[in-house]
Computed example of a mutant assay.
Amino acid sequence: MEKQWKIDITLEEDGNRTACTATLAGEGAPRVTGHGYSRRSPADAPDSRIGDEVAASRACSNLAHELLEQAAGVIEQHTHSPAHLTG
Rank of each mutant, 00 (worst) to 15 (best):
54 V>H: 06
81 S>W: 06
67 L>T: 00
26 G>C: 08
26 G>A: 09
67 L>Y: 03
85 L>A: 08
33 T>H: 01
46 P>D: 08
54 V>S: 10
73 G>L: 12
60 C>E: 12
80 H>D: 08
72 A>T: 00
82 P>A: 14
76 E>K: 03
18 T>M: 15
20 C>Q: 07
36 G>I: 00
23 T>M: 11
69 E>F: 02
11 L>D: 12
43 A>H: 12
74 V>N: 00
69 E>P: 00
5 W>P: 03
42 P>E: 04
10 T>I: 09
14 D>K: 12
75 I>S: 09
83 A>P: 06
22 A>D: 07
20 C>K: 04
27 E>I: 05
44 D>P: 05
54 V>R: 10
61 S>I: 00
49 R>D: 11
3 K>V: 09
80 H>Y: 07
16 N>E: 11
56 A>S: 15
44 D>H: 14
74 V>W: 06
55 A>Q: 10
76 E>Q: 09
83 A>D: 07
14 D>C: 11
27 E>M: 02
44 D>T: 13
57 S>H: 14
37 Y>R: 11
76 E>C: 01
62 N>Y: 01
9 I>R: 06
51 G>S: 08
33 T>P: 00
48 S>Y: 05
72 A>R: 10
84 H>D: 11
74 V>Y: 05
28 G>W: 03
30 P>R: 01
42 P>N: 07
35 H>Q: 13
70 Q>G: 09
13 E>P: 00
46 P>N: 02
78 H>N: 04
66 E>A: 13
85 L>P: 03
42 P>Q: 07
72 A>N: 02
78 H>Y: 09
65 H>I: 04
17 R>H: 15
28 G>Y: 05
58 R>A: 09
1 M>H: 08
20 C>R: 03
47 D>H: 12
70 Q>C: 04
64 A>K: 06
22 A>P: 06
22 A>L: 11
38 S>Y: 13
53 E>A: 14
21 T>A: 12
68 L>K: 03
73 G>F: 02
83 A>F: 04
55 A>E: 10
3 K>S: 11
50 I>A: 08
43 A>P: 00
31 R>V: 01
58 R>G: 04
76 E>G: 06
71 A>K: 04
29 A>M: 01
63 L>H: 02
4 Q>I: 13
20 C>V: 13
69 E>T: 07
